[in-house]
Structures are given as C-alpha cells and as structure tokens.
Computed example of a mutant assay.
Amino acid sequence: MENPEHGTPGVYSAKGKAFERDSRYITTRIMAEPREGTDDYPVEPGRYRLIAAMACPWANRSIIVRELLGLEDVISLGKPGPTHDQDSWTFDLDEDGVDPVLRIPRLKDAYEKRFPGYPRGITVPAIVEIATGEVVTNDFAQITEDFFFQWREHHKPDAPNLWPDDLREEMETVMERVYTEVNNGVYRCGFAGSQEAYDEAYDRLWTAMDWLEERLGERRYLMGDAITEADVRLFTTLARFDAVYHGHFKCNRQKLSEMPNLWGYARDLFQTPGFGNNTDFEQIKAHYYVVHTDLNPLSIVPKGPDLENWHTPHGRG
C-alpha cells in the first residue's frame, strides 16, 4: 500500500517481499529563471513555505540546508509534529493544530488544493506557495539542490559551497551509494518481508557502512576538508542510527558509537551550527516508535539510549 509515513513516498513490503520505495514525486521546480514551456515557479523571497518535520530524515535535510545557506528569512518553515494518522502529516505542534501561515491542519490540504484526489503519499519535505495554498514540489533531493543553485542570490555571504564543481562527478557517485545503501538501506532492513530479504539488506547496509568508516579515516568529511551536500544526506541517517535504526530496524551489528571514524564524523557535524540544533531526538523516537505500529504494536517509545555523548569532543578538527 502507499506509505505516507516517511519523508518520501514508499511501499511497505508484503510478507515474503523486499522493501521497495516509490520514488515518484511532484517534479515542479522553483527556478531563478523559469524555463519556457514548463510549470516552473519563480524564485521569490517570501512566496513559499517549506513544510518539513524534524522527525523525518528526508525532510531534515532541507531544514539543515536552509540554515546552512542562510535562507531562513527568504523561505519560511512550517513543522508538522512527529506523529500523525494514516492520511497526512499534521500540525500537532502548532496552536489549535493549524499551521499559522497556511492556516491548514493537514499537509494533505495543500496537496489536494493543487491536485484534487492526489493518489500517492502525503510526504515531507514539501514546498507550498503561500498565496494559493498549493503544494509546489515534494522532490526532496531536488529541493536541496535547488536551494543551492537557484536561490544563490539570497544566500548569506559566508554560505558553504555545498556543490563544488571540481568534486561534483565524484560526489554524485558517493551520494548515490549513500542513498541506495544507507539512507534507504536501513528501511530495507526494517521493512523486509522475509528473512532472506532482511539478510540481504543487512549485508548490503554493513558493506556500505564499512566503506564509509574506511573513507572517513582518510578525510574529515565525505569529499575532503569541507562540508558538502553529501554530508548533509548522510548525517540525517547517522543521527537516527543508535536511537532508532539499530534496534527498531534491526541494523544491529554495531552501534554508530562503536565505529570510531563514523562516530567522530557524525559528532563533528552535529556540533556544527545547522546540524545539531536541527536534530530533535525526542521527535525522532516518537515518530518511528509510535507511527510504525506494524513493527511496534504497542507504540512504546524507549527511554534510551543516552544521547548526551553527541556533545563529547569529536577529535576531527
């Protein structure tokens, strides 16, 4: 069935099947120079609202990139709560359960405003045009790429170069492996429909984790000495690893905190402005353990682990 419970459309695997993610998105772009003959929207400060739940790793990326680039006063941010019904992400954290700018209780309302009877999952992140209340896009990978390339005129003066030209080809390869084997790999473990599917997913995940551990023994960040988009994409999975994926998704060969290079790297990012301040472990745990009743029928949220260790010195300066 369609899965509205994560940051991107997905399909829960049936018994005996491997997990497969539905990667169909609303492909509308927001462009500095809209292309003729397309449904592109124009870049315009104050016109759009990013709807992104802190609990969701895919949405969390957009929150981090927005801050790294200094777009907080250009694109407003609405935050759905960590738990929701089968129908839509909802604004549980706002007064009266209504987004204060869009004046809607459910993100689904913005999807339906533009696409009546929208057939797929109601996912975050999503960008909504404030004046019309219509969703523009939910293509999570394209959103952060466009924040960098299309909104450049509005970046803060010291914004990091998240897409360095000389590294782009290699970075695309790294990001593809991170996405397929790690970001999505933990879900393949968690929602495997058979022992065989789980075993294969587990082995693929840990092959990739070992590759990352080795790579990060030779450089501070994934692409070298500076933070790039690749680091943002990996971080949101690592931030959830010990708190959720290790136990809830059965990714339990090791804890992240038992892998020296990955653990130091994750803490290095966490302690960088834009990363740790946009990581909410309580919302993360509430989302996975409460919403995934097929994996956790009683919706009991574990009290542990102790996550204060994220603030310890990382030693990667």
Rank of each mutant, 00 (worst) to 15 (best):
Y118S: 03
V186Y: 02
R168G: 02
A192Q: 09
N309G: 10
G304Q: 11
D294H: 15
M54A: 13
I104K: 03
I26A: 12
T312N: 05
L71H: 05
G117T: 05
D231Y: 01
D294P: 11
D40N: 10
Y221E: 01
I227W: 00
S76V: 00
E181Q: 14
V136F: 00
K250N: 06
W151M: 01
P105H: 08
T83N: 08
E20L: 15
S194R: 15
H246S: 00
H292Y: 14
A266Q: 09
W310S: 02
A239C: 07
E176P: 05
D294Q: 15
R253G: 06
N252I: 09
F148D: 00
R61A: 02
P125F: 01
R219K: 13
K15N: 12
Y41G: 03
Q271L: 13
I284N: 03
G70N: 10
K156Y: 09
I63A: 07
G185F: 06
E170C: 12
D22Y: 09
N184E: 10
T272N: 06
S257N: 11
K113H: 07
W211V: 06
D92R: 15
R21I: 04
D87A: 07
V178I: 11
F140L: 12
Y187V: 05
W151Y: 01
Y202M: 08
E172M: 11
M223Y: 03
F249A: 02
I51P: 00
I64V: 15
A230C: 02
K79I: 11
S23K: 14
D203L: 14
F115I: 10
P273V: 04
R49T: 13
W263C: 01
V43F: 14
E112W: 08
A159V: 03
P305A: 14
I122S: 01
R152S: 14
W163S: 12
E153R: 12
A18E: 13
R177D: 05
N138Y: 14
D199S: 04
N278P: 03
A131C: 01
S13G: 12
E308C: 05
S23C: 11
I122V: 08
F281G: 00
E145K: 15
P119T: 12
A226I: 11
P164W: 06
R168W: 03
F149A: 15
I300G: 14
L162H: 03
T28L: 11
V178M: 07
A192K: 13
G7T: 06
H84F: 07
N138A: 12
G117S: 11
D294W: 15
G315P: 05
